[in-house]
Design a protein around this nucleic acid. Structure first.
Lengths: 206, 206
DNA sequence: GTCTATACTCTGATAGAC
DNA sequence: GTCTATCAGAGTATAGAC
């Protein structure tokens, strides 16, 4: 990203307000989707006037882009941390755990991402076909290596990664459904953490 | 649902046009979400004029409700078919297979559902807390029975059902991402079918 | 830097001719 | 039953005062 392309992070007040706006925008976009969100809602949540929002960001679109831009990096970091030198099972379980924590601590980001993909990724296509694919290919090769060494069960590596995404993100993206079905007295993310560790231990046993 | 509550399914022309409209509405709603979709788009896809749409349905909201109404039934049928008398593994694998087929053959319905849940299920809350939860409780009890008999591995039954949902629907809802990451020369749903059978066989082995 | 007022566009819905 | 024309409201964005 070219320097200066960002909104107006010059002074401290500006940086702080930009942050407030993005925080509010995340809240609203993740709940209602890009088109469903309105500047009025975002302004309300941010505690600022609507024109003031547009002083910091040139358009609604720009707010959305700013959010997506920082999102992908956060989203891929847990996968980046998976190292070929480590113990295969520990590395994979570590990745699963980090993804569960991400879903628990950043459910709005997860839903923002889901919304974007669901709609055909109109604003993320390049990133998905570029950075994301490249990282997955790289990590799939590591998994394949472990499988060839007989250290974990032989499974299609990319689909294994899809499984981790699907299972962990489900608890954030379908939170409403998960809670409704589980009923009272449950901690979905704690249970998910335990359950998914068991699941992947069994699945990956050679 | 009370009879007569439906739009205007009296004559054959009306039934046909209602169907055309719902088909177009599904296409547009599943892609852009409720608020992102416009009547102009739906009219365009349906090949009808905008006022004509509103002759068959009193409002945009009514179209969406009609779609959601028929959706839940379709969505839950595969789970309903899971019988306690059958062989546990075969019953569960059959359910997984039916869900994969549903994702493959009705991806738009899957995305419509995902969109609705993602946004907090504003128009489906009752159905989820009612019919859906009841069905899941019933089938979870069957799974629990099989586990108590030692016929499948002991796992939290409701989370096991979540896993089936998450893994199968991922291929429909995140289709764009799946195809981008897999690259050319793949048949995501065929691979998913094979992979998920292997996955659940391993997972459920006692 | 922030606000009030407002311009302008899009969208859902209606009126009324045919 | 279907269309053209149009309304009313919402929504993004800008102008300009302070």
């Amino acid at each position: 990203m070219t320097p200066g392309a960002k909104p107006k992070p010059r002074t401290r007040i500006q940086a702080k307000n930009s942050e407030t706006i993005l925080e509010a925008a995340l809240e609203v976009f993740s709940h209602y989707g890009f088109r469903g969100a309105t500047l009025d809602q975002i302004a309300e949540v941010a505690g600022l006037s609507k024109p003031n929002l547009l002083y910091y960001f040139p358009s609604k679109e720009a707010m959305h882009e700013a959010l997506l831009g920082r999102l992908l990096a956060t989203w891929l970091d847990p996968l980046r941390e998976m190292r070929p030198e480590g113990d295969p099972l520990a590395e994979i379980l570590g990745y699963v755990r980090r993804k569960v924590e991400l879903s628990r601590d950043y459910p709005r980001e997860s839903r923002l991402f889901a919304n974007e993909i669901l709609q055909g990724a109109p604003r993320m296509r390049d990133a998905i076909e570029g950075d994301l694919k490249q990282l997955v290919d790289e990590k799939a090769a590591i998994l394949q290596g472990w499988m060839d060494q007989g250290r974990i069960a032989r499974l299609p590596p990319v689909h294994l990664i899809f499984s981790i995404w699907a299972l962990t993100q489900h608890y954030a993206d379908f939170d409403v459904q998960v809670r409704a079905v589980l009923g009272e007295g449950h901690d979905p993310f704690a249970e998910a953490g335990d359950y998914l560790e068991v699941l992947f231990r069994k699945l990956l046993a050679p």
